[in-house]
Simulated assay, not measured.
Amino acid sequence: MNLVQPIREKDIIDEIKKHLRNENKRNYIMFMIGINTGLRISDILQLRVRDVEGWYISLRTKKRNKYVRIKMPKNLKKELREYIKDKPKDEYLVKSRVGKNKPISRSMAYVILNDVAREYGLESIGTHSLRKTFGYHIYQKEKDVAALQEMFNHEDPKYTLRYIGINQDNLDSMMSRFGL
Rank of each mutant, 00 (worst) to 15 (best):
A117L: 09
K85I: 14
H137T: 00
E119Q: 08
L122M: 11
A146C: 07
A147R: 13
Y120D: 06
E79Q: 13
E123V: 08
E91V: 01
S124N: 15
L113C: 11
R69H: 06
M108Y: 13
V145I: 15
E142Q: 13
M72F: 10
R81V: 01
R97T: 14
V116H: 10
M151G: 01
K85S: 15
V94I: 15
R69L: 05
K143I: 01
E123I: 04
Y110P: 02
P73E: 14
R118G: 04
N114K: 15
S96V: 12
K78S: 15
I125R: 01
M72D: 09
L122P: 11
K100V: 11
E123F: 07
V145Y: 04
A146N: 13
G99D: 13
M72Y: 09
F134L: 01
T127N: 05
A109V: 12
D156K: 13
Y163H: 12
P103A: 13
H128Y: 02
K158V: 02
K78R: 15
Y136M: 00
M151Q: 11
G126P: 08
L130G: 03
K74L: 10
V111G: 00
M151C: 04
Y139K: 02
V145A: 14
I112R: 05
E79N: 13
A109E: 10
F152E: 05
L76S: 13
K143W: 00
K100L: 10
A147D: 09
A146D: 11
L93W: 12
L122N: 09
P157S: 07
D90Q: 09
K85G: 12
I125Q: 03
D156C: 10
I70M: 14
K143P: 03
E155A: 12
V111M: 03
I112K: 03
Y159W: 04
V116Q: 09
I125F: 01
P73Y: 13
V116W: 05
E155P: 00
P103G: 14
Y120P: 04
E155W: 00
K132V: 01
E155T: 06
E123C: 02
N114Y: 09
Y139S: 01
Y136C: 00
K95A: 08
L122C: 07
